[in-house]
Amino acid sequence: MSPAGGDQARRAAAAFEELRGVAPRGVWSAPGRVNLIGEHTDYNDGFVLPFALPHRTAVAASPRADGVLTVSTLGDDGAARHAEPIAVADLEPGRVSGWAAYPSGVAWVLRSQGVTAGADLVIAGDVPAGAGLSSSHALECAVALALLGLAGVPEDRPEIARWVQRAENDFVGAPTGLLDQTASLLCTEANVLFLDVRSGKAEQVPFDAAVQGLEVLVIDTRASHSHTDGGYGARRAGCERAAALLGGPALRDVDTAELDEALPRLPAELQPLVRHVVTENERVLRAVDALRAGRVADLGPLLVASHESLRDDYRVSCPELDVAVGSALAEGALGARMTGGGFGGSAIALVPVERHDAVVRRVLAAYAERGWATPRTFPAVPSAGAARDD
């Protein structure tokens, strides 16, 4: 096994052999991600700055000759859950629901690319589900690489990201952009991925917070979120409407210098959405400049401004996220913000290493005072992207 997939690749391979009686043809894995900054900019043709987490989803896979797709997944208790087998030829949106819709959607998209054979898939992973850390895209990217690998199709990772987006949008019904799947596929160890979504240009920007005595602390609020409940889609539709009213293909085309002139041309309900997207793109560019210059601490105020914009203008935060951010800042974090699509999920904080324990205690105490579930916290470092593990 390669070091990328680690324990999850070994778990998936062992479970496959136990369930199927033979070793899998191969194992592929893909990571979850943290988006350092650049939220809700991807579907507006803007800029994003994610990095891959060490947490991964692994898929052990072998081909089948009968055209049937079987999918099993290991729970935290090690017990396997099995989806109903289905012929790849019969896959259509609406035919599969729940967790099995994600791998099935990938198979459905790849069918249109000539990948029509069946497969046995066994999944194991430790990307926290519902935490805004892209567990669904880690699963979809690992499945895509597995099915393409079994079919012997050469990888074009930017194209695979678009296929995974189609699976998420059209099969699962979540109107997500290109950030998550591109991060899972393209991120590399020790770097953040500076992605211009419109052009597809990607730059690996070195990011080593530890060398400056800092860390990125992830705070999983345990407030579960969903991209299929309408809130995400409503904001995306609002952005598309605003871009059309302003006469451009996307909000990417509105410059910060033009913002004051552009906003009065829009209905009042669209103005905050546009203000967030335009200013968030500017924050990404400033964050990249800071990292190129080695000024990691300069990210702090940008993270705070991003959270305030997501909370007040885009309105995708929630009390759990706001308390996590406020508690971290009160205990010495240089910056903090919600990360991911919002409505729950996780926050991140840029924390001096010596303040780690104090920040965690402050966050846990704030949650306990409110009777909320205890959040999960862990430091995150830029890790390897998707790969074949065996």
Rank of each mutant, 00 (worst) to 15 (best):
V122R: 02
V122C: 03
I123M: 10
G125A: 13
G125N: 12
D126N: 12
D126V: 06
D126F: 07
V127G: 03
V127L: 10
P128A: 14
P128W: 07
P128L: 13
G130N: 08
G130L: 05
A131F: 13
A131E: 14
A131W: 13
G132V: 11
L133M: 12
S134P: 05
S134K: 11
S136C: 12
S136D: 13
A138F: 14
E140F: 08
E140R: 11
E140D: 13
C141W: 02
C141G: 11
C141H: 07
A142M: 08
A142K: 04
V143E: 05
V143N: 02
A144F: 00
L145I: 00
L145V: 00
L147D: 14
L148C: 12
G149C: 07
G149H: 03
G149F: 06
L150H: 07
A151Q: 05
G152A: 07
V153L: 09
P154E: 12
P154I: 10
E155K: 10
R157T: 14
R157Y: 14
R157P: 06
R157S: 13
P158T: 11
E159A: 15
E159V: 09
E159S: 15
E159N: 15
A161S: 08
A161K: 01
A161V: 01
R162E: 12
W163Q: 14
R166Y: 15
A167D: 01
E168L: 05
E168D: 08
E168M: 10
N169D: 04
N169H: 10
D170L: 15
F171R: 04
P175Y: 05
T176Y: 01
L178M: 07
L178S: 04
L179I: 08
L179M: 10
L179Q: 05
L179W: 01
L179G: 02
D180Y: 06
Q181G: 05
Q181K: 02
Q181P: 03
A183G: 02
S184T: 04
S184E: 00
L185D: 07
L186P: 04
C187R: 07
C187K: 11
T188H: 14
T188N: 11
A190T: 15
V192Q: 05
L193Y: 05
L193D: 02
L195E: 00
L195T: 06
D196A: 03
V197C: 09
R198S: 06
S199I: 06
S199E: 06
